[in-house]
Design a protein around this nucleic acid. Structure first.
Lengths: 258, 258
DNA sequence: TCTTGCACCTCACGTAACGTGAGGGTTTAG
DNA sequence: CTAAACCCTCACGTTACGTGAGGTGCAAGA
């Protein structure tokens, strides 16, 4: 490079001695292996070799390498770089736009993941001494819920959760743990759904559902679908869990109440 | 799964028949090949095989797979998942934080790249019919400048560039293309730097520099360093370019002016 | 009972862009 | 002339599987 800063002799440009691979690597910040690799895949083949096979890179090769490096900083894969430099039937502006679009999509995905992990972290902080098992269960619960609820419903639930006290959540949990076994034993005893015993339970059940859904019918049915499909999974995580049969039973009771 | 939604018979859990690989794959959304792979790397080895060698996954294996899937959605590599599930000597909260940090760094890098590519795009839009070569040259210029200027200096230059009209930029370019050959020929003729001829040129030179740098001495020296080190590259892109010798010559002339 | 078809098995190569030796020639400075 | 430094060509390792190739196991219909 320094040889060319002498301004009086610009015509000697072509007579510059070609570079060996190590020299080119050193001057361009590439590794020798990378240059070998570019040669292997036909991206940058030195235009000369010594009789013994040593690679010799001419000025034109150096320029090509600089072009390669330029395109690579955009994150363009090597085979695409080769296509662009060899038969460029796509405009540079399109190249930029295309990769910018890809990049933005990638960033958006990563941002969603980060957001998701942050909400995961807040969930984890509710547990006193979380084990790896707890972590996995919470992740499973979150991904499961994402399958059954829309984004708005999830946000609504998130809001409601933060606006509610920790104790109240436990109270609700305890209520379910009390009610569900009652329903189960009543059903096992073949009690009539319209009997006063079940009607009383159904009233509490409806109140709990009402409180959770805030009267949102869509939300209520999403919850039911989820419990129907993911019964065993939720049971593992929540303890007592309503079965489809219970939904039927309580549904009959509610119908009888009207 | 459906077999377990019958709530009256929870004790039959263990007697569930084990699953073959295709069945497990179908139910968990994994591919058979992935399960084979997990087996190969010792991440999930089915606890049973049929005499003929068919893999049989028990309930415990299914649970492990669910844990694996849970951790994988965070983007944790497989060997790390194995470490976490086997000998978890790191707390789940740390796992989340660690990967969240990684993720944020990654996002930050991608964002910087996106920003960079957007500014690249605006540069490209200044060229009428940009070729792939123009694209590479602009990229080179941008990366080169990033080596010599600080972030603030670059922003300053960006601001100045947008506040200036296109024509004016061409005028400045033309001025340099006029002045530099004059200096070169004067130097070739060994004209004294303190001669009125050179002094006149030096005044125009200084004015141009002054306009570009806005009097910022740091900026001026950064520019000089860049021209010194990247002479040939810039020459390729700008046409006429000052050499270190010219800086010396003009420096002498300026000293004589005072 | 035989065959058909499907699910299963074990290799083994391919992916992206090189890093990292191994084993052996070449060049060059002393 | 020799030793250091440099060069060469394989060739495996990396990540998380996809995609056959070639062969076996198993349940059901003819």
């Amino acid at each position: 490079m320094a040889t060319n800063t002498i301004p009086m002799l610009p015509t000697r440009k072509q007579t510059l001695p070609p570079w060996k691979v190590g020299e080119l690597a050193g001057r361009t910040g590439m590794s020798v292996r990378a240059l070998h690799h570019y040669d292997e895949i036909g991206l940058l083949t030195p235009s000369l070799r010594t009789p013994s096979g040593h690679r010799l890179y001419q000025q034109s090769d150096v320029e090509r390498l600089q072009q390669i490096q330029s395109l690579r900083v955009m994150g363009i894969p090597l085979d695409e770089v080769r296509e662009l430099l060899d038969g460029a039937r796509i405009s540079p502006r399109e190249v930029i736009d295309l990769h910018l679009t890809r990049l933005h999509e990638h960033i958006a995905r990563q941002n969603r993941l980060a957001e998701w992990m942050e909400s995961l972290a807040t969930h984890m902080d509710r547990i006193e001494a979380p084990s790896m098992d707890d972590l996995c269960q919470i992740i499973q619960a979150m991904t499961t819920m994402e399958k059954y609820f829309t984004a708005e419903q999830l946000e609504l639930l998130r809001d409601r959760r933060t606006s509610i006290t920790e104790e109240h959540m436990h109270e609700v949990r305890d209520s379910w743990n009390e009610i569900i076994p009652k329903v189960r034993s009543a059903m096992a005893a073949n009690v009539d759904p319209t009997s006063p015993e079940i009607l009383a339970i159904a009233k509490r059940w409806k109140a709990l559902v009402e409180e959770f859904t805030g009267g949102d019918q869509q939300l209520a049915s999403s919850v039911m679908t989820m419990y129907k499909n993911e019964g065993p999974l939720l049971q593992q995580q929540l303890g007592e869990v309503p079965t489809p049969e219970m939904f039927v039973c309580i549904g009959k009771a509610c119908a009888a109440m009207r």
